[in-house]
Design a binder for these strands. Structure first.
Lengths: 323, 323
DNA sequence: GTGAAAGCGCTAACAT
DNA sequence: ATGTTAGCGCTTTCAC
């Protein structure tokens, strides 16, 4: 393929690259005549600037990386879409990297992003280890965590208010008369999952009911054999309601459980608020549009040199989807 | 933030950048002693290569751009995930750009991608105009269309076999005894939508029933007021079944229609084959994993100089999701 | 109003 | 086994 450079345009018009550069960057010290010639020729030749060269020269790319565990999760995909929308309007472009909930792929994604000279990183960490975050911190790359955080690492994050979320789920079930909820959660290293359980416990505590630790069933969000796992759960545990770590998990276990007994299920993320689904369910989700906006704001502040550490919790509420 | 360069490492060890470069690129002509020193220092200093410089020097980035109308559509998000998986294993990274079904954003996304010096582009076009594709063609950038194509432009594409898809939807409804299907489709410029209608007509023709053109109700996949539109349709048309352009549209119209009369609905994309949803529905989807694999293969061939034009149709089948 | 030239970080060809 | 250097495309400073 043919790549047109400033030099190609300059040669054709018998001017220098500096002149062409000035015209195309809108630096207004070139005669109207030359300006017009340059603009027309650039257009005709299909000139596209070479960001690699610009990046090398200027030391920035106006690009940020969004690194997530699963781009095919509708909740995450939607947040990415919002981030991309917002950043595009601010003249940034976004590159998205998927980690498949795999720690080593996460580390690789981070170095890929850095190698591409992005100006900042938004990371939803897998949390199997904190290597990635610590690397970002060490080299002082502007970044922020989204959707998940490490309680042990003092760093910027923007997450849902998951304790409140668990609490709301609890309140909802208590109101429905449920006394014995089971929490089908993520792995324990996903700390927001623990927060949801904490909130749930708190709501029940207030109602005089103690939820003990064995009601927390950890399950991988990428399990292949969810059906069997769920059948096991139904056999092994006594419960009159379910709180699931996410809508995705809720959707998968609902029909299996309903086959045996019909109990209320509450999920998280409120996927149906942006992806219409024709069935009834309840879910805790973030108000407005979630963490997308706040995350971009925080990151841009970090890029602009802000040293303050941001811990942002996005408010949540119960969604009941009825058809 | 501090960026470590080859020079920083070279200076610290009193060797030259060439030496360091050779070590880090695995060119085996450096003494073991020096090699070890370099490797250790690079690691310790947190060296990450500068792709802008490499790109400028080598003229390639090992990066491909995937440009899609809506990344928050689960069908598309899943295909992207598969593409990313496959390309990562081939040592490519992927940047994803969203166009919001907006033609001018699509053009901008293409120039952004080119500016970033990607080695190839996979484009699912908005189809309001063909400017983007024509630009890619003009500058001879390796690219392929995915999921949608232009019948008027001779170029590479990888799509579902949508005529067959429509045909299968028709057969399915005929078997259910439906004689009067309505096609709730996308805008007419989305040609794959027309193909689905063609297939549907063909199936009914074979059953001795003629479907005329007014049974094709175009509807935007991003309509805000789907409910009202659907209510209008229910009032205005006579039908005993529905074929929807996509699952997304099917999900949105199903409850509105079911309120008035319960009729079979067939969607497209079979979202539930990768995103479990706890309700029953029927959908036409691609076999195996869809166009993702084929699309990357074709693109890589184009990048490697293949001139042949690829028109790839991925086989489809009916999915019935029962819970 | 335009030209000339340095230099961003890197690789590869050539020297030693 | 290691050093030296040109040059990728661009922006910017300094001349004229």
């Amino acid at each position: 393929m043919k790549k047109v450079t400033l030099k190609d345009i300059a040669n054709k018009l018998n001017v220098t690259v500096g002149t062409v550069s000035h015209v195309l960057n809108g630096i207004d010290d070139i005669s109207v005549e030359t300006k017009m010639k340059v603009l027309k020729t650039a257009e005709k030749m299909g000139y596209v600037s070479n960001n690699s060269a610009v990046s090398l020269r200027l030391g920035k790319t106006n690009t940020i990386a969004v690194i997530v565990p699963d781009i095919s999760n509708p909740h995450i995909a939607y947040q990415i879409k919002l981030i991309e929308d917002k950043l595009r309007n601010l003249n940034y472009s976004v590159i998205i990297l998927n980690t498949n909930e795999d720690d080593s792929l996460e580390y690789k994604a981070i170095t890929t992003a850095l190698s591409k000279q992005v100006d900042g990183v938004l990371l939803c960490p897998c949390q199997q280890s904190s290597n990635g975050v610590e690397f970002l911190k060490k080299i002082e790359m502007p970044y922020a965590l989204i959707g998940r955080y490490f309680s042990q690492i003092d760093t910027d994050y923007i997450c849902a208010d998951d304790v409140k979320g668990g609490y709301l789920a609890g309140k909802y079930l208590i109101e429905k008369g449920c006394k014995n909820p089971l929490y089908v959660g993520s792995y324990k290293y996903i700390e927001v999952g623990n927060n949801r359980f904490e909130g749930l416990k708190k709501a029940y505590e207030e109602a005089g009911i103690t939820i003990d630790e064995e009601k927390y069933i950890p399950i991988s969000p990428v399990s292949e054999n969810i059906n069997e796992l769920t059948e096991d759960i139904v056999k092994k545990y006594n419960f009159d309601s379910i709180v699931a770590f996410s809508d995705i998990i809720a959707f998968e276990i609902m029909p299996v459980i309903n086959k045996v007994k019909k109990v209320p299920v509450v999920g998280f993320d409120a996927i149906s608020s942006h992806l219409y689904l024709p069935f009834c369910y309840a879910s805790v989700g973030m108000v407005n549009k979630g963490w997308a906006d706040k995350a971009t704001e925080v990151l841009l502040e970090k890029i602009n040199g802000e040293k303050r550490v941001f811990h942002e919790l996005i408010d949540v509420k119960m969604f009941e989807f009825n058809i």
